[in-house]
Amino acid sequence: MAKNLFVGYNERDTFLHRLSGSTKLIGFVSLSIIGMLTFDTRFLLGIFLFSVILFWKSKIKFSEISFILKVIIAFAIFNIILVYVFSPSYGMSIYGSQHMIFGDPNHFFNLSWEELLYLFNVMLKYTFAVPLALVFLLTTEPSEFAASLNKIGISYRISYSVEITLRYIPDVQRDYRTISLAQQARGYEISKKANLMTRAKGAIQIILPLIFTSLDRIETVSQAMSLRRFGRHNKRTWYMARRFKMADYLALFLILLIVIIGITLFKVNNGRFWNPFK
């Protein structure tokens, strides 16, 4: 699976690998939600550092993630530029003060310290969860993922859907590649230069067999699963589930602590923004 998702589980032995998937999932979800809500630069920097440390602890090699990192940086920079170009004085309106670097607050294009701080916050929000996500993806065995989802309260049917997704992505990908070649061999041109309508038709020519094969597969797989009694009871056990150990409880406690700090900061800041300009 690793190759097919570009980043994926890597068997190593660190404390992060030993933590239960549920713990990591709870950690990722709660930290990314609190980080999504807050605009407290100090707190965001804090989580960012925390996740970088975790990342370093997980002994993931840079080469494993260099590709995804490039995409993320390009995406973040592009978005920051857009945010700035569309509304250069947005920062000032948020923080309610005007500390100009250049330009006039009354003209459209200008730059203020408020804007810079705001953009820095946005940048952090785009990136703070990335190390966490990578740690999560690279240290959690895919097989354990569905069991973890179920453990944190998501119904086992939905959890198993996710397992099926992970199971069949490589197959769908291989089918896609083969089908697209088989269609070219039949004489369909799949050219990059064609107009939108032609390209849409070309795309359909490929995805049609892909979809029909997959619909057939949905039939057979659901038959295979019913024949082995999937869905008989309201619960099921998981071969790959992991019990919570001491380390898990400690980790959950730490996560709770961070979340509480985040919430307290809303109170202290009187809102989502930390305002150093006041």
């Binding site: 999937f230 008989r232 619960k235 056990t237 071969y239």
Partner: peptide
């Protein structure tokens, strides 16, 4: 291999 046992709620 364990799939049907999981569905029958057999302990791990």
């Amino acid at each position: 291999m364990a799939f049907s046992l999981e569905n029958d709620q057999v302990p791990q």
